[in-house]
Design a protein around this nucleic acid. Structure first.
Lengths: 343, 343
DNA sequence: CTGAAAGCGCTAACAG
DNA sequence: CTGTTAGCGCTTTCAG
């Protein structure tokens, strides 16, 4: 009745040992490439493995040694920036025995997904959700190697990989101010949340923006707008913004998804040529000629690659925390330019 | 020296049993909600669990029972259609004890990722890569529940969830032919591969397109173009196509990513208004006003949700294979319209 | 309702 | 170089 009756049990190390006429330990050594195996024995064992179609059980192995699995916790796959990160991570893992598994977070927090990975005995975890509690993560990092991606906290037990959000934002503000923009709106997911989370990249961008505008001095107007997290909500927010005059001459979105929402609103109001738009992440869409979005390239692939490399180092024995900073670069495209003359 | 020295060992079921003053079996029952536990014992055990911050090891559990993990093998995360599928799958899993893990395929094939999932004792696997060998999959399905997503084969041991690619294509051709288009180019990843893979959705779309064009009769020109798999390669192919006259009046891409590449080429040649473009998948970008791509909605979320539901049924004991077909719907947007008059 | 005992498949020490 | 032994943490009979 149960499914077990309908499913073939797969071969175990015991079966292989029997078939090859050797001990289980010998088989174990062969499959791990451990030292101390004669060529003859290796050949016999490999033949038996082939014959029986044997595959080692990672679960059983995890009970003793390593699972050779690295976990990547991600907030939501809709975010294109993640694609870059995953690509980089895969690249860093190519040629190693390690396998990458991705656990998408259920809610915004990501605790569930991270715990799920830890419960599954992964050898290391890359965390992306920027809102997990630092103390909680610190505790987790006492049990399993952890690399936090994107958030700027210094920790005793886990590593971090971040983009230089202040430098990235400064490139944007320098660029826009240099073009002559005086009234600039910054779109961020949630201004209140950002005000309370110092290590959050969006919080840093928000503050760096404010600082730059203040430094720019008299006559410049900085405005902050909380848009929510989705493209649709950003679109609605910008639509509302365009409902009243005067319009700002430039919009700076905290990430490309918000920028896309803003662009939709601009297109609808036929304002795309009069209002400059800058995003953050330089996701693949930004480069599309129909979008042509000026954006800050965070080099996500490098981040993912570094994160995995650090995890591997930690698994290898390193215990001192490391903090890697990636320098972003502004990529100028058609969505931005000088403010209209009459403004 | 080793990492073990620096890492806290987490609490085991033994520790909890000791702390609560009960047997390990009792603790096991409590954490599994198994029958036959007194309220008093449950309370004691739960207190100890809380106290010790105990989390059951999935690896150890997998050795005997279920891992409560479902694996999703995906070809590449860059494909936006996957996002819909994953969302649907997550939705179907909400409220259950199961956790979803995603294994991105290394190459185009996906064998590695699928095997990695199987090795990790997942309780079921959803396979998306359309090019894995049917016989190979059949064998795998003898060991673990499998649902194949997108490919139209009937199998004895695994379930399938597919969109009705013939119906979807027919909607596109009916629409374009009805508009008066006579010279239509179909963009597909690789015409040769598709010719040899009967169950591949792109192969079905290709054939359905040819059939429809033939049925439309004399004077109509169907043209097939292999573009490669990426947006960039599709863009290059269409750029080359536009290098020579006469231009087709409509382009039908086998998926939205190719359509985006085509759109880029059209925009560059200022041909977006004179050449109609239709995609397939109705990914979120298609709806963006700056893109406004006519596309076939495959209802990916429903597919993901159904795939997981079927897996759960199989885990529950079902053994007869099922075949679920989702009916797609054409969504008309600005990228398509009647052919220009002079054509 | 509770506990004791026997493994699940594998690896790590060690003895030969 | 090879085999034996003792678990890893958990679930699952099966007696009490």
């Amino acid at each position: 009745m149960s499914q077990a009756s309908s499913r073939r049990r797969s071969a175990t190390i015991q079966d292989v040992a029997r078939a090859a006429g050797v001990s289980r330990a010998a088989v174990s050594k062969v499959i791990r490439d451990a030292a101390g195996v004669s060529p003859a024995m290796r050949a016999k064992v490999n033949a038996a493995i082939e014959e029986l179609n044997y595959r080692p059980s990672v679960a059983a192995r995890s009970l003793r040694g390593a699972s050779y699995t690295l976990g990547l916790e991600v907030p939501h796959l809709g975010n294109r920036f993640l694609t870059q990160i995953v690509d980089g991570a895969m690249q860093a893992l190519a040629g190693t025995r390690y396998q990458l598994v991705i656990a998408p977070a259920d809610g915004r927090q990501g605790y569930g997904a991270i715990e799920a990975l830890a419960d599954r005995q992964v050898d290391g975890i890359v965390v992306i959700s920027p809102r997990v509690d630092a103390a909680w993560l610190e505790r987790l990092a006492g049990t399993v190697p952890v690399v936090m991606l994107g958030r700027h906290d210094r920790s005793a037990h886990y590593d971090t990989v971040v983009g230089d959000d202040v430098a990235g934002t400064r490139q944007v503000t320098d660029y826009l101010l240099g073009l002559g923009h005086r009234h600039i709106v910054h779109l961020t997911e949630d201004a209140a949340v950002n005000a309370s989370q110092a290590g959050n990249p969006h919080a840093l961008r928000l503050r760096a923006f404010q600082d730059a505008m203040e430094a720019a001095g008299r006559g410049h107007r900085a405005q902050i707008l909380g848009t929510g997290q989705t493209e649709a909500s950003a679109r609605a927010t910008v639509t509302a913004l365009l409902g009243e005059r005067p319009w700002p001459t430039a919009l700076f979105a905290s990430h490309d998804q918000l920028a896309l929402g803003a662009l939709a609103a601009l297109v609808e109001h036929d304002a795309a040529r009069s209002v400059s738009l800058v995003g953050y992440d330089n996701t693949d869409l930004a480069a599309h000629p129909a979008i042509s979005l000026t954006s800050v390239d965070q080099r996500g692939a490098e981040m993912g690659q570094r994160a995995v490399a650090m995890l591997l180092e930690r698994i290898g024995g390193r215990t001192e925390p490391q903090h890697h900073v990636v320098t972003p670069a502004l990529v100028v495209r058609g969505s931005s330019g000088p403010p209209p003359l009459e403004a």
